[in-house]
């Protein structure tokens, strides 16, 4: 069961996604939640407080995704993490759009966010390193290549949904995940490919 505070956050996230953070007024949030503005003011002092809470909520959720790495490095675990990434970036698009608004210095939230996405990139590189170590991946053909691959995957993970919307396509989770896996595919060894075919491909077949 959600309490009012959670309800307010949920509708704020939805409205931020639809209209952008700046365009949303407190009145709208209150209407969407189904409470009075007075009640809203009881829970959150002002809009900044709501935005602050939303960001905290987002960061909490993103750290939960990052923590999934510690569970296992197996391919299935990476696939599960991809699903989590899709859910996250689908739900919080406004957040990325926020980055393009201003070119001047990053604010506090953006700095924290920058820390998170850097960790995300390090994780992807680390997963590739593990695959190489486990002989599922061929040894790096030229130095720096896997760093490049990791960065491409990272870009895809973050911007794939935006890219699809720009093209006028409705993205699906399967397309999203397949786009990532296909980027990794050329580097599999025979045993890695066998494992991939056995564990990951069946997910896409239905």
């Amino acid at each position: 069961m959600y309490n009012t505070k959670q309800k307010i956050l949920n509708s704020s996230i939805q409205l931020f996604n639809q209209n952008g953070v700046d365009a949303v007024r407190l009145q709208q949030i209150a209407e969407d939640t189904g409470i009075s503005v007075g009640n809203l003011a009881y829970h959150f002092k002002n809009k900044d407080a709501i935005v602050e809470s939303v960001y905290e909520y987002i960061f909490e959720e993103f750290s939960a995704i990052l923590r999934e790495y510690a569970v296992s490095t197996a391919m299935t675990s990476f696939d599960a993490q991809l699903s989590s990434y899709y859910d996250f970036f689908d739900k919080y698009q406004f957040y990325i759009a926020d980055f393009f608004k201003t070119n001047n210095t990053l604010n506090e939230h953006q700095q924290i966010w920058q820390g998170y996405v850097t960790k995300m990139l390090i994780q992807i590189k680390s997963r590739i390193d593990y695959l190489v170590l486990n002989q599922d991946f061929i040894p790096e053909p030229m130095s720096g290549l896997y760093q490049q691959v990791a960065e491409n995957i990272w870009t895809n993970l973050i911007f794939y949904i935006q890219k699809c919307r720009m093209q006028g396509i409705t993205p699906t989770e399967m397309q999203y995940k397949l786009a990532i896996w296909n980027q990794l595919r050329p580097y599999f060894t025979e045993s890695g490919l066998a494992e991939f075919n056995q564990l990951i491909l069946p997910i896409f077949s239905y």
Binding site: S72, K119, I122, Q123, L133
Partner: peptide
């Protein structure tokens, strides 16, 4: 952080 993940990788292996 990268070093930490590397340690995790080795642990998994």
């Amino acid at each position: 952080y990268a070093q930490l993940l590397k340690g995790l990788n080795e642990m998994f292996l």
